[in-house]
Amino acid sequence: MVRREGRAHIPRQAAEQGLARLMMRLPATRATIRVTAARRPHLYELCAAYGEACAALDRMRRDMSADPAIITEYEIICAEIEIDVTRILFDDR
């Protein structure tokens, strides 16, 4: 992320990919996640982080020389972001 004038610039492609992946992983949130992400910049930032982490995880899983410990770490990161997103959505109700 690039900081401009005190605010983070969120990579749109990563955020949209993360949002799409979250909607697939958390089907119960599909109806609300896009609306909430538009209203809450923090959730949109989490979507971007999730998109980037999932993309890195996908690359590592294809790379036969990737360190299994790092793959596990990224799996944990993705799971933690899913939990954070779920909390945000349920706290928003």
Rank of each mutant, 00 (worst) to 15 (best):
E45I: 02
A66V: 09
E52N: 14
D58I: 11
R59N: 09
I77R: 11
S65D: 12
T72M: 07
M60Y: 13
A69W: 07
M64L: 11
L46M: 11
I70M: 10
I77D: 03
Y50L: 00
D63Y: 06
L43R: 10
C47T: 04
P68E: 05
L46Y: 06
I71D: 07
T72V: 02
A79E: 12
A55C: 07
A79L: 01
I76S: 03
E45G: 08
D58L: 14
E52K: 10
E45W: 04
M60R: 13
A53V: 02
D58N: 13
A49F: 05
R59M: 12
C47N: 04
D67G: 03
R61A: 02
Y44A: 01
A55R: 14
S65L: 15
C78H: 04
R61L: 13
G51V: 05
A53R: 06
A79I: 07
D58T: 14
L43C: 10
D67M: 10
R59Y: 09
A48I: 04
E75G: 07
R61V: 15
A69D: 01
M64Q: 12
L57H: 11
A79G: 15
E52W: 10
Y74C: 01
C54K: 08
E75N: 09
G51I: 03
E73M: 01
M60E: 15
I76R: 01
H42Q: 10
P68C: 01
R61P: 00
E45T: 08
L43V: 01
A49P: 01
Y74P: 00
A49L: 07
I71E: 10
A79V: 00
S65K: 09
A66M: 09
E73C: 13
R62Q: 15
A66T: 14
I76Q: 04
C54I: 11
Y44H: 14
I77H: 05
E52A: 14
M64W: 08
A56M: 11
Y50S: 10
Y44K: 04
L46H: 12
I70Q: 12
